[in-house]
Nucleic acid binder design. Sequence first.
RNA 1: CGGGGUGUAGCGCAGCCUGGUAGCGCAUCUGCUUUGGGAGCAGAGGGCCGGGAGUUCAAAUCUCUCCACCCCGACCA
Length: 437
Amino acid sequence: MRLSEYFLPTLKEDPAEAQIVSHRLMLRAGLVRQASAGIYSWLPMGLRVLRKVEQIVREEQDRAGAQELLMPTIQSAELWQESGRYDGYGKEMLRIIDRHDREMLYGPTNEELITDIFRQTIRSYKDLSKILYHIQWKFRDEVRPRFGVMRGREFLMKDAYSFDVDYEGARNSYNRMFVSYLRTFARMGLQAIPMQADTGPIGGDLSHEFIILADTGESEVFCHKDYLEFDALSEETDYRSDLSPVVDKWTSLYAATDEKHDPEKAAELGDKLISARGIEVGHIFYFGTKYSKAMGATVTGADGEELVPEMGSYGIGVSRLVGAIIEAYHDEDGIVWPDDVAPFTVGVINLRTGDQDCDAACESTVSKLEAAGIDVLYDDRDERAGAKFATMDLIGLPWQIIIGPRGLKNGLVELKRRSTGEREELSAESALSKLIR
RNA sequence: CGGGGUGUAGCGCAGCCUGGUAGCGCAUCUGCUUUGGGAGCAGAGGGCCGGGAGUUCAAAUCUCUCCACCCCGACCA
């Protein structure tokens, strides 16, 4: 992609409305534009990142045995009346009246809808267990949206729902999602720490929030230092095996949000205790038969008796993650994308657009990278070197290949790693061979 | 939902107190010079001063009202 043709409206100055760093950078780097309070348009580069994040989530859901479907954004109020949440959900639910005066709503979550699908179709215990998920826009009419996409009213969320014949099965589904979340966030370069969360009226220990540490996190969290050393990707996961050892390992150390914080227990950790701010990027919980019972979603059990399935639900804030990743990966010059979510892998900077040698060297480099299947953004604009450096650092592509007349005289280009700032001068061929594996 | 604040060019802001021809920086366009970390000079374009109603000879400025957005808190993926 040529930058001269790309739709990338960057800003040199900080927009006044953005307070936290991820919001500022998302606006400055031309990823999003606010449409109204808590509602954003995703511009081409932002959309690329969103899609990458979404795809990682999808792959890890699939790997864990969940199956993707797609439910609508607009739902009928009837289902919610059935579950009893229509009145209970309050003003956060955006309610809509259609032309026939029917009450509709923009879905804030999908337990009712998935339960409805389930009860229409699943008849036998033999069809369980099932985990179904979708990645869809949600709307929650927050009183006070803020922090850009981190706490918008409209947001993209992956929500999965599990159905099992008994508690043991539900626990197994829970564990699958638990482990898949560890892998999902790790692939994005995030160290997410599972923290025990409020389980509401159900009780038990089957609810966890996945928190990443960041200075601008919205809540205070406490955890054992050793969590930072845990590596979710170090071993291959077999989702058909018993996952409880993995879950046990990740829940063995102290980790709590401020509402679950126990100062006495935390004090035992001594200097191993970390007190920090955290961003919630995922939340999983088991809720038993709450919806299946209320909505009459039953199957026939092995003994011929009617059986009420045990359910759980599992959310990941996909659009929020884009902001969260920036919170974790930026410096004073801009965003520093982790490799796996970067909108482009390499940025090629032509320091002298119009110079025959520079143009030729750049174009040859770009086309070789593209031929190798690497996403390249080529800055061919007629701008000064400084402006190009600044733009490239701002948008945070993991690699930069800098090509100018000075180096070309000696047959050299420059390869820069955005995350470390490390640069080396080398031939175009060796630069390419470092990027093309 | 309580408290506070801001709306003036695409972005960042001044002007408002004390009413009198709407300004600055960046960005945009043109020309020349420049060319390895957001260039210099010269010129140009761009505004229902958030909307409505009032006061006044005269309103960006004063009054009332509505709207939008932001911040702090309570709440939340």
